[in-house]
Design a binder for these strands. Sequence first.
RNA 1: GCUCCCUUCGUCUAGUGGUCAGGACACCGGCCUCUCACGCCGGUAACAGGAGUUCGAUCCUCCUAGGGAGCGCCA
Length: 471
Amino acid sequence: MTVKTRFAPSPTGYLHVGGARTALFSWLHARKHGGKFVLRIEDTDLQRSTAESINAILEGMTWLGLEYDDGPLYQTHRFERYNEIIQRLLEDGLAYRCDCSQERLDRLREGQMQRKEKPRYDGHCRGRKIDAGSPHVVRFCNPDTGNIIVNDLVRGKVVFHNNELDDLVIRRTDGSPTYNLTVVVDDLDMGITTVIRGDDHLNNTPRQINILQSLGQEPPEYAHVPMILGDDGARLSKRHGAVSVMEYRRQGILPEALLNYLVRLGWSHGDQEIFPIDDMIELFDISDVNRAASSFNTDKLLWLNQHYIKNDDPARIARLLSPHMGELGIDPSVDPPLVDVVAAQQERAQSLVEMAQISAFFYQDFEEYDETAAKKHLRPVAYDPLQRMRAALESLDRWEPEALHQAVVDVSGALDLKMGKVAQPLRVAVVGRAASPGIDVTLHLVGREACLRRIDRALDFIQKRMDESAS
RNA sequence: GCUCCCUUCGUCUAGUGGUCAGGACACCGGCCUCUCACGCCGGUAACAGGAGUUCGAUCCUCCUAGGGAGCGCCA
């Protein structure tokens, strides 16, 4: 049988990293086994489902490259089918109408809680004949005895007792079907062989198996993967920072870095840390996923991100960096070529946002010197070296890295100074900070005109300092 | 409250009835070096607790503690 998995989010928010990870696992499982991966939108909650949310989910899936072979399928388009099944269950006596009032249910619940029992429906309407024309819900007639055994691919064997379960509502008063019914019907109709989802659904599984069996069907395989926690061990939420997949894109994370990070959360293959997509598909095995929840660690994600930035084709990184430059008000299509900037900065940034920030000086004069850098390097002792550097640079007829490097070496030699004594003031003068790519590449990319202009500015700056201390 | 699930360095994890309990991120040293970064070398750091089984338990069993999920006319 061909493997078929699905990702079935409810469109009530953004695609968050936890959802993205279960989607990734499902996708990997399908790809590994040459199967199909389906995207299904569980939008039966008409109050909370929104079109924006659907778009956000689709956008997130696309960005991550988790392409689906079928879908998106919408549950709201399938109400007829669900009703057909509900009707069948009613006719077979496996479901029944219930008109218990909210008050009665509340009272029942309250009494059970007081007696320290698990709150659940008491089957009051099971034997009653309720007119189909009057307001009612439909409940599934859950077996009273026996066990349900789930052989979970991640959890192993989990046993549930039917006497712990109750008769759940499968159709609301307004005629709409509920989650536990729709999942069962959809997974069945779509031929899903492996249900991979968050472990918050583990407790729903026996109910769904019961419905499935009452329809005369065999349950699919299940794999309940643990959730993702925040740095502090609490359930991941907005206060931990970014939870939306698209937020990571805004923060300059590469999709392959996020995927690599997510696949290693709760899963591993020996000591391997770097997993390009093809490796993941080859090596991933859903049954190797850990049972315990794991905490999201942004530092490690950034490390992976830096790894991918560092090792990727500069042209691609430049393309991805471009919008982040735009955010800073820089037109990335002017000189120097963004690809050259990327090549120079590739090992120096953990994110595209950071790369944009540390690369702005290539395109525009900086506002102010970094205070400590100026204090340390733009001092009176640096005046003479800077002035000589300016002269040397001005007379240079080739503005190329080798020639620029030689110029710095020559000036240091002439003054009998270590190279750093010349290069650092020069760097601060040209970039405004104490850190940048190699001084030769930096000067080259900034360009002659801007370099000379900024050196003059630095000389003025030092002159002013000297004047001030003299008076 | 009841049912189900989980527990190895701060974090992600490997691991076996006998290991100096391994790797990665982070952190701390050092090297490289015009700065930063990269890279390289080294270091700190963990089997939740208690019983039992066993010649021997991180590993098997039970209990406790802690964490999580579910118990909706939400999904």
